[in-house]
Amino acid sequence: MKILVVEDSSSMRAYLTTIIEGGTESYDLEIVEAASGFEALKTLPHHTFDAILTDINMPDINGLELVSFLKNHPVYKTIPIMVISTESSDEDRKRAAALGAEEYLVKPFQAGELIEKLRRLLKVA
C-alpha cells in the first residue's frame, strides 16, 4: 500500500513518517512525501495511492484546494483523504468534510490516534 503525505514542515513530515512507519510495521506500506500542494500535484501521476494525508495551511495551494481538486478528479476521487490541521480552524474542518475528505485529525495528536484513523482510512484491521 502506498500513501502520500503532504506537509510543508520538514520536521512534521519526518514525525508523521516515523509514526506511520512505526505503527504499520505489519503491512507493506510505502510513504511518499510532498512538501507543498504543487509537489503533491506533480507526484500524483507517478503513483497509485491508497490514501492521502494533507495539512491545510501551506504555501501555493492550501489543503482544501487540494482536496477539492482530488475529489473532483475522475481518477483520484476514490482515494480516501485525511486532513490534518489545528483546533483553531473549526470552520476549515467543516469545509474539509463538505469537500469530501474522509477523516480529519487535529494537531497535536497522539500517535495512536493517527494510526487508528489511518487504518480506518485504509480499511485495514
Binding site: N57, L64, V67, S68, S89, D92, R95, A98, L99
Partner: peptide, 8 residues
Amino acid sequence: QTKKSLTE
C-alpha cells in the same frame, strides 16, 4: 466548488 475550497 470555489466557495467550499476557500479557507476561513
